[in-house]
Design a protein around this nucleic acid. Structure first.
Length: 614
DNA sequence: CTAGGGTTAG
């Protein structure tokens, strides 16, 4: 083999790896084997890289195993191949052979690869060991390893350690800055992240994307949108890839802000990224969360090659809109396309069954998840499953599951069981659940209302006043409940018990009128049992404390007859408000859509799509 | 051959 053809072939393989195309690469490999040059020069290591980049890690390993004299590059290539194939366990498992079999110590390339593996596993213990080896090695000022350490520590929520490493880098490049900014943002330290970005000498799209996506992941969606706007105005920042757009769409989704989401969608079209899978998936979710399920369907249909996330997004969207049967048939369709559901898919499916009262189907899915797909159910899966059983009145079964499941039940678990016990008038069981809920110190004030109502229904007034005293002495509520109403482009926010002055008169008058109409139809507010020793005026005052009531009244005043009122709420909607909104829907013949912190409620023709209570 | 940014539940 001539020198020319060696270099030529090598370049060719490198090009294939760069473009992740295996077809010519494999032919080149066969050619090299045939000419007996398999172990010549950089061929084996380059081939490992090619197979790794094409997702054929087993082929990479075969090449690796055949090398008679493996060097540092061979090791770095195979270890990074496992990282690229999302098998960080294999990376760490194979590494000891580097010394025990080949008598080689890790170089800076191998160290960086190991740190990355620890980061994706969230294994700080091992990560610190690698850090120790790095410090005593002769590469201990390597900035690439340091960047990976910054990322590792921040992924393990040791943001202080990340900062120490970050500060120790003498010449920080933008990768290092980005790792640190992303770490702060994902750990909820938005101010620190923003401060760091402003201090960064050469901001680019990567650093902005890291900041914005981290802020979205911390749940601060308004801040994220502000930063997105600021980035667009920032000089020299051009959106050259769709990464930041999927975060912007996700932020609009989390805000359930349809108009905002549509604007971002337009922006996506203008920039030419409609074909991006990540953006498409985010758009499906955004339209579903904004309760425009038809738009969600149409974006979903337009995705050329759909993945699990696309299917899960539309299935969860459809399910949350009360169309359980449709969600289940889409699941079958997904399976027929050869796609494997993940843990999120099952959460959506079991919720769908729960709302539609499909107990047998829900059980079947829960078991199939474990047996056919080897997905270990999380606490959330158990909560969905318990919700399914208890809503259908199988409370004893549900309680059995709670006792046998491998998790400590949390607040939502007991709250779900308590609501169901109340619904099915199992007072004794309800009291038991209320005690459990009290014993884990609920953070959510609505739990106290639920507990208090349970005792009230059983006539246990001593217990009621005890709970009320606990409520009164409880530390300041972190955040008051609030709702906002969307009427086309207009939106108005209402904090519980706080009405903007110019709206006070008309809104309160309308609520009073509605309550009079409801009482004629036998409406007894749930809250009045909590407040049994208050006078009537105080009870009435309590009725105006609910932000969704204020929002719906405002919506009724503003909207033309027959139009849909969309309300978004930051807390779970309580049983009494549920009854209230059902009746408002019936009296006014409007469709009211409420999204609370967990699900949708479509109030139409006197019933709710969510399947009943809450 | 090594390091940083994206979507779905809660």
């Amino acid at each position: 083999m001539t020198a020319f053809s060696y270099t030529h072939l090598l370049r060719h393989i490198q090009a294939c790896a760069k473009h992740r195309t295996i077809f010519p690469g494999k032919k080149l490999h066969a050619h090299i084997v045939k000419s007996g040059a398999e172990q010549c020069g950089a061929f084996p290591n380059t081939l490992i890289d090619l197979y790794a980049k094409c997702g054929l890690v087993r082929c990479a390993r075969k090449v690796f195993d055949k090398i008679p004299q493996r060097d540092h590059v061979s090791w770095a290539s195979i270890l990074s191949a496992y990282n690229q194939s999302m098998l960080p366990n294999r990376t760490l498992g194979l590494f000891p052979d580097m010394y025990t079999v080949d008598h080689l110590l890790p170089d800076e390339f191998v160290l960086a690869t190991l740190v990355k593996a620890c980061a994706s596993l969230g294994n700080v213990r091992l990560g610190k060991q690698v850090h120790g080896r790095f410090i005593v090695s002769k590469f201990n000022e390597d900035y690439v390893v340091k960047s990976s350490l910054v990322d590792m520590y921040s992924k393990c929520e040791l943001i202080g350690d990340a900062r120490v490493v970050f500060e120790s880098v003498l010449l920080k490049n933008y990768v290092c800055w980005t790792a640190m900014i992303s770490g702060y943002a994902r750990n909820g330290k938005i101010d620190e992240a923003t401060k760091l970005l402003r201090r960064m000498p050469l901001k680019n799209l990567f650093s902005w994307t890291a900041l914005i996506s981290g802020v979205v992941q911390s749940g601060c969606n308004v801040d994220a949108m502000r930063l997105f706007v600021e980035m667009r105005r920032e000089e020299g920042i051009r959106i050259e890839d769709p990464f930041v757009l999927s975060s912007a769409v996700a932020a609009s989704a989390n805000l359930a802000a349809l108009e905002l989401g549509k604007q971002v969608h337009c922006f996506v079209i203008v920039l030419g990224y409609v074909a991006s899978l990540f953006v498409g998936n985010a758009l499906v979710d955004m339209y579903a969360k904004c309760s425009d399920i038809l738009a969600a369907r149409s974006v979903f249909d337009s995705i050329w090659i759909k993945d699990v996330v696309s299917w899960t997004s539309i299935i969860v969207g459809v399910a949350q809109h009360g169309q359980a049967e449709e969600a289940l048939s889409m699941f079958d369709e997904m399976l027929s396309k050869g796609l494997k559901p993940n843990e999120v898919t099952f959460v959506g499916l079991i919720y769908a069954c729960s709302h539609a009262g499909l107990v047998a189907k829900g059980r079947e899915l829960f078991n199939s998840m474990i047996e056919d797909y080897h997905i270990m159910p999380s606490l959330q899966h158990y909560t969905c499953f318990l919700d399914l059983l208890s809503r259908s009145g199988l409370l004893t079964d549900a309680y059995e599951v709670v006792k046998t499941m491998p998790f400590e039940p949390d607040e939502p678990t007991w709250a779900a069981l308590l609501s169901a016990s109340k619904l099915h008038k199992k007072t004794q069981l309800a009291i038991k659940m209320a005690n459990h809920l009290l014993s884990i110190k609920p953070q959510d004030p609505s739990s106290y209302i639920l507990i208090s109502n349970t005792y009230a229904a059983a006539g246990m007034w001593d217990e009621v006043s005890k709970v009320r005293k606990m409520m009164a002495t409880m530390a300041v509520r972190k955040e008051p409940g609030y709702s906002w109403v969307n009427l086309g482009k207009e939106s108005q926010t209402f904090y519980a018990g706080e009405i903007p002055n110019h709206l006070k008169q008309p809104v309160l008058m309308l609520i009073e009128e509605l309550i009079v109409e409801m009482k004629k139809r036998g409406y007894v507010p749930d809250t009045s049992s909590v407040l049994h020793d208050l006078d009537n005026q105080e009870k009435e005052q309590q009725l105006f404390q609910h932000s969704e009531r204020l929002a719906v009244a405002y919506g009724l005043l503003k909207s033309i007859s027959g139009t849909t009122i969309r309300i978004v709420k930051n807390l779970r909607i309580c049983g009494d408000c549920h009854t209230f909104l059902t009746l408002v829907g019936r009296i006014t013949h409007r469709e009211i859509i409420v999204r609370d912190s967990t699900r949708y409620h479509h109030f139409k023709d006197g019933s709710c799509s969510c399947g009943g209570f809450w």
